Simulated scan of single mutants.
Amino acid sequence: MNKAVDIIGSARSCLFLTSAGMSAESGIPTFRDKEGYWRNFPAYKNLKLEAVDLANPRSFKTRPSHAWAFYEWRRRNAKENKPHEGYTAINSLIDNHFENSFIHTTNTDGYHMTSGTSADHVYEIHGSIWRLQCMAGLGCSYTYEENEDVPLCGLDYDMMTASNLPMCPKCGGLLRPHVLMFGDFDYVEHAYQYNNFRDFLERAGIPDVAILIGSSGSVPTNDYLAVRLQASGCKIITINPDESSLRVCKPDVYIQSGARAAMTEIVRELRIKI
């Protein structure tokens, strides 16, 4: 921890790379634990449907009621829970310590913005459950829009089926979450967030430090980015209670801890007010 505090304390620029483990401490399931997934969705176990089957554009065409139930449950779950103190600690570092900083997250729960992070400091590279896009993708002028309605559609918890599905106001087709799914070729990039991320890299160059939080390496988007940054001289700090998370990126500093405890301790050691 002391080495991490020293690196962060002397750094002027930082990229936070947050993944599923960051949200897990707030009650957001990772869906990588199959048994945990089945406990939440016994109806899907009977149908032999896994998360990879439902988080897939094909399911919105072939079984839209089941696909939307999966995401409606996630929207309600995210609304019922809230970001933990680790998010606040990150915001404190962004606001009160670094000259240039940014959050590159694979999480789709919107918790960084919910915690108070400015929207121009976040790139949700895998999208957000709080936006909807038309199934037609760029073939429809609707593309994507913010929608934080809860409930958005009807949900039968026992059968895990949804009703009154959201429809596109432009073309009348089905709307889907603005989330990059498995086998997804119709996801519409969020240009505003992408451009803000690009602007950060132009300002900061290679950041002094990147903090990789909560990635199991199963979806290694952030891990691969960390590897590329490290090769260019960026110091990498990994925060994860599971040591197997180190298989993709070998960090300069490894903190075997959850995000909440690690980030709040770092801020406390740096004497930055949360």
Rank of each mutant, 00 (worst) to 15 (best):
A4S: 08
D6N: 08
S10L: 01
A11W: 01
S13W: 00
L15F: 01
L17I: 03
L17P: 02
G21T: 03
A24F: 02
E25A: 06
E25Y: 03
P29I: 12
P29F: 12
F31V: 05
E35S: 13
N40A: 11
F41V: 05
Y44C: 05
Y44K: 04
N46F: 06
L47S: 07
K48V: 11
K48W: 11
L49E: 05
E50V: 15
D53H: 12
A55F: 04
N56D: 10
R63T: 03
P64A: 01
S65H: 05
Y71A: 04
A78G: 12
N81M: 12
N81Q: 13
N91F: 03
I94A: 00
N96C: 04
N96S: 06
F102P: 04
N107E: 10
M113I: 09
S118V: 10
E124D: 13
H126E: 10
H126W: 06
S128P: 14
S128L: 13
S128Y: 14
I129L: 11
Q133H: 09
C134Y: 11
C134H: 07
G137S: 10
S141C: 06
Y142C: 02
N147W: 10
E148C: 14
D149T: 15
P151Y: 10
C153T: 05
Y157M: 15
M159D: 13
T161Q: 12
N164H: 09
N164I: 06
C168I: 03
K170H: 15
K170C: 15
G173N: 13
G173P: 03
G173K: 11
H178W: 10
H178Q: 14
V179A: 11
L180E: 14
L180M: 15
M181F: 14
M181K: 05
F182K: 09
G183H: 11
D184I: 06
F185T: 14
Y194E: 14
N196S: 04
F197V: 00
D199A: 02
F200M: 02
F200W: 00
E202A: 06
E202Y: 03
E202S: 07
G214P: 01
G214C: 05
G214Y: 09
S216R: 08
S216P: 07
P220W: 01
T221V: 07
Y224H: 03
A226S: 02
L229Y: 00
I237L: 02
S244E: 04
S245M: 05
K250P: 03
P251L: 00
Y254I: 02
Y254A: 07
S257C: 04
G258H: 13
R260M: 14
A261N: 13
T264F: 07
E265S: 15
V267H: 12
L270Y: 06
L270T: 03
